[in-house]
Design a protein around this nucleic acid. Structure first.
Length: 492
DNA sequence: TGAAATGTTGGGGCG
DNA sequence: ACGCCCCAACATTTC
């Protein structure tokens, strides 16, 4: 391997858009060679899972923040390039810069694994060293096997096995690397401007995002410390309340690697307020993130296909009007509509709401979970292939450790239980502002005359329910029964 | 990280 | 005092 001190190393940023706890960046600087930090925008190569619109909005700001921090703290200029395939771009970059190595963070999506394999092939032909470092997960997703030597399909045993392996994290949590030397030796390759990536929407539907999010590295740090200071102690109770800020709200930062899971783990371990069951439960949520990646790596077809093969025969509906009503938050069920509107306006939805709207799509409307996954992909700022896939297969009843298909959420009861005063529902469905708490989750049960006094006319300023709950539940169970029958006859 | 249907129990009203 | 019924309240089963 050529290791001239004057020849650079390329640090290819993928999902590690930060400086601290960043092994590829740290190890590259540790060689003493000059550093060329790059980000490649190759959406065609990621198709059909190139970042959705909300995700691109976040990415724009994350790249801007990364570039600023690289410049201010390490004196490095982030190079942005676009093209068809990372392998082509990296081969050319290595050639023109004389780089001896390319270091990057490891990714787990099936297409990203293939891309890295192509990169490895072309760089090896050019005698350029290519190394991937686990930057985003606590454990390597292939590190864990159950007693039969198989990947885990149930969360609890997975997590019991995973936790003891996380103990050395403190040592592995790298600091911000020192400022690299020898930078004057490098001729920097050309970079396009961030705006040229066209990541921001042309129609300003993202206006509401700015009020809720600070998608920068400073925002990531602030989000972690605010959660650990103010919310982790009551996390166990409050995490299910969409009317409160009770969750960590770290998902987009973790997705883009603006904060690392190792950093969050470590910070939680030492936080004074995280000693109780709030902290423990929060750490297990990081465990679900690990589990999702474990599943995606071992079952790479699951973004589009059910893990349980019998679900391929499920009699899904194909009702475009229902899908549109769900997407727009016009189902007539206040808690469902609130969740979908929160998503549209902020690029994020509370986890409890995600379960409720998911159950409603799949069970009350009998629409395929893939349609829900696609919509989330396009609209969530934290859209993550591993977690989105696991979540939708879980609610669809067709995945690992999934909710059984017959476990159907009642959107009225869920509302009464987790948004008792209706504050969440009213925030996103302002037409319902005057409905009393007893009726807020089922306004159609109120007499029309009384409803009208509260300013609501169903079908005019708030939709009537697009399906009846009891009927929807019945149809879902019938559809499930056909599946069982098929399975039985196959077995017979 | 469900909800509904069905079963069981026990207190109290009442003849 | 007693048996009967009703129906919460809780437990269990089923989807």
């Amino acid at each position: 391997m050529p290791t001239s001190p004057h020849r650079p190393i390329i640090v290819w940023f993928r999902r590690n858009l930060r400086l601290a706890d960043n092994p590829p960046l740290y190890q590259a600087i540790a060689t003493g060679q000059p550093i060329i930090p790059i980000f490649l925008w190759t959406p065609e190569a990621d198709a059909p899972w190139q970042p959705g619109a909300a995700s691109r909005w976040w990415l724009h700001h994350a790249l801007n923040s990364l570039a600023t921090n690289l410049k201010d703290q390490l004196g490095l200029d982030l190079v942005l390039q676009t093209g068809n395939h990372p392998a082509e771009l990296l081969a050319e970059l290595a050639k023109t810069t004389g780089a001896t190595a390319v270091y990057t963070d490891e990714r787990w999506e099936p297409f990203a694994i293939e891309q890295a394999e192509s990169v490895a092939t072309v760089l090896t032909q050019q005698s350029v060293d290519f190394q991937q470092f686990n930057t985003s997960l606590l454990n390597h997703p292939t590190a864990l096997k159950n007693k039969q030597g198989q990947p885990f399909k149930v969360f609890t045993p997975f997590w019991k096995t995973a936790v003891p392996l996380i103990e050395h994290l403190l040592e592995k949590c790298l600091p911000i690397p020192p400022k690299p030397e020898n930078q004057h030796c490098v001729t920097f390759p050309p970079s396009v401007l961030l705006d040229a990536l066209n990541l921001l929407p042309t129609v300003p539907w993202d206006a509401g995002f700015y009020a809720d999010w600070n998608p920068t590295l400073e925002g990531a740090k602030a989000a972690v410390s605010a959660f650990l200071k103010e919310r982790v102690e009551t996390y166990f109770e409050d995490r299910n309340r969409p009317d409160l800020v009770g969750t960590s709200r770290l998902s987009p930062y973790l997705h883009f690697g603006q904060i690392g899971a190792r950093q969050v783990w470590w910070a939680t371990q030492v936080a004074a307020n995280a000693k109780g069951k709030g902290g423990t439960h929060f750490l297990s949520e990081l465990g679900w993130r690990e589990f999702a990646h474990h599943l995606l790596v071992h079952f790479p077809t699951t973004p589009t296909q059910p893990l349980r093969a019998d679900f391929e025969a499920f009699p899904w509906s194909n009702n475009a009007e229902h899908l549109q009503a769900w997407q727009q938050g016009e189902t007539g069920y206040p808690i469902v509509d609130a969740g979908m509107k929160e998503l549209w306006h902020t690029g994020w939805m509370h986890n409890r709401s995600r379960m409720i709207v998911g159950s409603f799509l799949v069970k009350h409307l009998l629409l395929p979970w893939q349609a829900g996954a696609k919509w989330f992909w396009e609209t969530l700022v934290d859209a993550d292939l591993a977690q989105n896939t696991m979540g939708w297969q879980w609610i669809g009843g067709c995945g690992a450790d999934a909710a059984p298909y017959f476990r159907i959420f009642n959107p009225i009861l869920q509302g009464l239980k987790f948004d008792a005063q209706g504050a969440y529902v009213k925030k996103w469905n302002p037409a319902l502002i005057n409905i009393p708490a007893e009726n807020i989750h089922s306004p159609w049960e109120q007499k029309p005359a009384l409803l009208r006094m509260d300013g609501v006319i169903l079908g005019e300023n708030y939709p009537a329910p697009i399906v009846d709950h009891a009927e929807g539940r019945k149809k879902a169970l019938e559809a499930f029964a056909t599946l069982k029958k098929n399975t039985d006859s196959e077995e017979a």
